[in-house]
């Protein structure tokens, strides 16, 4: 599944970039994240309870900051595993200065592959749910930066 979007953040690009590559900051915006463990400056591990309503699973997610070209481009790769289900996701973020001073336009894209139980019995709700969660993640990033 491919998702993409664009959002304007009332914060300078450097600050947005710094936020995106800091696992403790960006990680808190991931859906259902309960804990973050930083392994090194490029790798971190999260535990999250992800789902819709009470249909949910606890994932252990290994994340990698795969690309970081300050202050314009970052790619985060994630592999999450829950009983019977695996999620592989790549998030790409491209930052450009906004029209207004101290604003940033973030173009984001996400490629999400869900494997196993959730793919084979949750097909009818997966796309809508994933879309919503991704949108919430980027909304959260914007909101935290604008706090």
């Amino acid at each position: 599944m491919e998702f993409s979007g664009q959002t304007t953040i009332k914060a300078p690009r450097e600050r947005v970039f710094a936020f995106l590559i800091d696992p403790n900051l960006v990680g808190r915006c991931g859906p259902g994240v309960e804990s973050i463990e930083v392994i090194d400056d490029r790798h971190f591990k999260a535990k999250a309870k992800v789902g819709v309503g009470f249909i949910s699973a606890r994932f252990v997610i290994n994340m990698e900051l795969a690309e970081a070209d300050a202050p314009s481009h970052a790619v985060i790769k994630a592999r999450g595993q829950a009983p019977g289900t695996a999620v592989d996701a790549t998030g790409t973020m491209d930052l450009a200065p906004g029209d207004e001073p101290d604003t940033t336009v973030m173009k984001w894209g996400a490629n999400v592959i869900i494997s196993g139980m959730m793919a084979s019995v949750g097909a009818r709700m997966i796309e809508g749910t994933a879309n919503k969660m991704i949108a919430q993640t980027f909304d959260c990033i914007r909101a935290k930066l604008e706090e």
Binding site: F54, I55, S56, V121
Partner: peptide
């Protein structure tokens, strides 16, 4: 905790381990 009445929506999800209760 989760309420159950007839269980015909909840139990299948629990059997598939999609709902953890």
């Amino acid at each position: 905790a989760k309420l159950i009445a007839g269980g015909h929506s909840l139990l299948p999800l629990m059997k598939m381990r999609l709902a953890s209760v």
